[in-house]
Nucleic acid binder design. Structure first.
Length: 293
DNA sequence: GGTATTTGACCGCT
DNA sequence: AGCGGTCAAATACC
């Protein structure tokens, strides 16, 4: 119950902070920012609604409240099936996106192994100069595979949560560039981030080879954004910072000097302020159409 | 030296 | 049998 209330309060706070930021900054003139900000608020409320539904044992919502209108936008549409955990992840990064859960987002791929509860989200590739930056989803990912897909010009990349070994986090995602729109990525999230809910890491000595000194006393988790867990909610100004960047500040590997970093609020703030993005290198390889394609 | 990425091989599902 | 997903050795990077 507390968790549900926290979600509600968190959503209210997000809305209030959005209002404040719009009053205080020139962000109001930025349509992109407005869109992603509104999405974030809607997401927070829907997360709360799902929590309430679970409490009342009503069937989970099949559509996000208010999203029907948004779905008419060419920039954003949603198609959701039950899975509160999964959909909360899909929204971790905000930004314009299309979301579908349980597969069949495009109907193009059979995705036979796509699990129930998976969330498919299409996100635009952000361009910064010559670089194409995938939007940040707020988590840290480690690439574990790449595969040529039968009817796709571009390979599909497979990522798992960087903290899999340490927290036993089973979250995974697949990233693939769309054939018909190379400027768009289709990101499929599978599994939930246990690393975000577990205050204490799962100690598997043989597996926990990640920076022990850093993680050992680190009660933070692998994500920098609040999901619906207000107890670890960083300041919204940080989130807004990421939104301003199109959420591109962090992506695969959340690296600093090439290594995974569990960031503290200060580092996060600095990151948000200075757009210290490190993404791109991994995805670049994926984005480049292979010769012959 | 430690960690992340790449990539060929393997496994299981359809 | 073909394909998608994952593993793990090799390699790259810091």
């Amino acid at each position: 119950m507390d968790d549900v209330l926290s979600r509600v309060f968190g959503a209210c706070r997000l809305a209030g902070e959005l209002e404040s930021s719009l009053r205080l900054s020139s962000a109001a003139a930025d349509a992109r920012f407005l869109l992603s900000s509104c999405e974030h608020v809607v997401d927070a409320f829907n997360n709360a609604i799902d929590g309430v539904r679970m409490l009342t044992e009503l069937p989970p919502s099949t559509t996000f409240f208010g999203m029907a209108d948004l779905s008419e936008s060419p920039q954003l549409s949603l198609e959701v099936q039950p899975s509160a955990a999964a959909h909360s992840e899909a929204f971790a990064g905000g930004g314009e996106a299309q979301v579908a859960v349980g597969g069949a987002s495009s109907g193009r791929r059979s995705s036979r192994k796509r699990k129930e509860g998976s969330v498919t989200k299409t996100v635009p590739v952000l361009r910064t100069g010559n670089m194409e930056i995938p939007p940040d989803d707020g988590y840290t990912w480690r690439k574990y595979g790449q595969k040529d897909i039968l009817d796709s010009r571009f390979p599909r990349s497979y990522y798992r949560c960087t903290h899999k070994n340490y927290y036993g986090c089973e979250a995974k995602k697949q990233v693939q560039r769309l054939d018909d729109d190379p400027c768009t990525l289709e990101v499929t999230y599978c599994g939930s981030h246990t690393c975000k809910t577990s205050p204490t890491p799962i100690r598997i000595p043989s597996l926990a080879r990640s920076p022990i000194g850093k993680d050992e006393n680190d009660d933070t988790n692998c994500h920098g954004h609040p999901q619906a867990a207000p107890t670890t909610t960083p300041s919204t100004s940080i989130q807004l910072g990421n939104w301003f960047e199109g959420g591109s500040s962090r992506q695969e590997g959340q690296t600093q000097s090439g290594r995974d970093v569990d960031y503290c609020p200060v580092a996060e703030l600095a990151d948000a302020m200075f757009s210290s993005g490190s993404s791109g290198s991994i995805m670049d390889a994926m984005y480049l159409p292979r010769p012959g394609n």
